[in-house]
Computed example of a mutant assay.
Amino acid sequence: METSAHDDLPTPAQQALDALAENAEDQAALDVLAHSDVLVPVPDDAVGREGADATSVALPVLEQPGGEPVVPVFTTEGEMAELLPFVSHYRLIPLGALASQWPDEDLSLAIDGNSTHALTLTSQGVRTLLAR
């Protein structure tokens, strides 16, 4: 059974998520997370439609059953493929930059949604914890 060396090693962002699962106030982990790039899924019908404005990104919003809308982002392509296998395009964005422009409405952020180190933040949490 061959596996490449990086298959089982968590990324720094995933290590930060694991640390935050144990201690939500871990400032070092929050800093790592804020400075990590995340994959923001781009629906196929939106590819090429965003035009020349590379400074804005259309946030994909999923409606949770009985919950508030959530924006899914991922730390790796593998995590994204597991939850959203039908999405083939994404933008790589620093999480802190995404957080600093977070909309005012009640929109949660789900990082690696269904993995063992998933983290979901409220809109307030995104702005206060990750906007750097």
Rank of each mutant, 00 (worst) to 15 (best):
V73R: 02
A46K: 09
R127V: 07
G113Y: 02
R132P: 13
P60D: 04
D26T: 07
E68L: 13
D8A: 13
E63K: 06
L119R: 05
A58G: 10
A5T: 10
L119M: 10
P103D: 04
Q124M: 11
A131L: 07
D104I: 06
G96C: 06
Q64F: 04
G78S: 15
V47W: 06
Q14W: 01
P72I: 00
E105I: 10
V87D: 02
F74A: 03
D45N: 14
T75E: 01
T75S: 07
S56G: 11
D26E: 09
D37N: 15
P43T: 10
A58K: 09
N114W: 10
L33F: 03
L20V: 05
S123E: 06
A13I: 03
L62R: 08
E22I: 10
L62K: 06
T11Q: 03
L95R: 02
Y90L: 04
A21H: 11
L98I: 07
D37S: 15
L109K: 02
V42Y: 00
L9T: 14
A29L: 04
H35F: 07
V71N: 01
S4V: 14
D44I: 09
R91T: 09
F86H: 15
H6G: 11
M1T: 12
P65T: 10
E79S: 06
D7N: 12
F86E: 15
A24E: 11
T75A: 03
A52Y: 09
T11C: 04
V40Q: 00
G48K: 04
P43H: 09
L33R: 00
G125Q: 07
D18E: 13
A81C: 12
P41I: 02
P41Y: 00
V126C: 02
V73G: 01
P60K: 05
T11P: 03
D53L: 07
E82F: 11
V70H: 03
E2R: 12
H35L: 08
T55F: 08
R127N: 04
T128N: 07
F86K: 15
V47S: 06
E79M: 08
A118S: 14
G66Y: 00
N23F: 07
L84A: 10
E105D: 13
T120Q: 07
Q101I: 10
E105R: 14
V87C: 06
Q124N: 14
G78I: 15
H35R: 11
A19P: 04
G125W: 01
I111W: 00
A52S: 15
L129Q: 06
V40P: 02
